[in-house]
């Protein structure tokens, strides 16, 4: 196991479209172990996709379970993932391991239906929303050679989702 080098934009390889995984074998599992190590090294990242380390197969890891008060499906290793349904829109701020020192606001679907395979080749099916759905959409973009930079709507002045804090009633 080893952590791998993360490609940084404008490396053209980040624009490459990744291919489907065909064999669920030791080679795949070894690569996933390395990808896990690489994600572990990054500061506070909730996901990573294979092309970010120059491996052009449709593999990504998403794990938002470390975030407070967030619906999630735990630690997910997704092979050949595909979003089959989208619903709603939500603005949120994103950054990327492959784009250091820059963040921006991106619109993503609020809810998605996700189909994928696990590393053993079993079918997975998820209904996801919010932060986890955002993370999955960010990673799936990498598999198609897209970056959040392609979707930044603005860096400021946006109407964020109204998750507004109300002052607590006085005791």
């Amino acid at each position: 196991m080893a952590s791998l080098e993360i490609l940084s934009y404008p490396d053209e390889r980040l624009r490459q479209k990744s291919l489907e995984v065909e064999h669920f074998d030791q080679t795949l599992w070894d690569f996933i172990a390395d990808l896990e190590d690489t994600l572990g090294v990054g500061p506070g990242a909730v996901g990573i996709a294979a092309p970010q380390v120059g491996h052009f197969q449709r593999i990504c890891i998403v794990d938002v379970s470390g975030r407070k008060k967030t619906k999630n499906h735990g630690h997910l290793v997704l092979i050949n993932p595909e979003i089959t349904e989208w619903d709603g829109f939500k603005l949120g701020r994103e950054g990327c391991l492959s784009v250091p020192d820059y963040t921006g606001n991106v619109v993503r679907a609020e809810k998605i239906t996700l189909e994928a395979f696990d590393p053993e080749g079993n079918e997975l099916n998820f209904e996801m929303s919010g932060y986890e759905a955002r993370a999955v959409q960010h990673e799936l973009d990498h598999l198609d050679g897209l970056l959040f930079l392609d979707r930044v709507v603005s860096r400021r002045n946006d109407i964020f989702d109204r998750k507004v804090y109300k002052p607590k009633p006085k005791k």
């Binding site: 909730v46 990327c96 932060y131 960010h138 507004v164």
Partner: peptide, 17 residues
């Protein structure tokens, strides 16, 4: 929050992936 002023506070959580 008075005299026609509304103040809203929101968390910004940057998703890095």
């Amino acid at each position: 929050n008075r005299d026609g002023i509304e103040i809203q506070v929101m968390d910004i959580e940057t998703l890095v992936g």
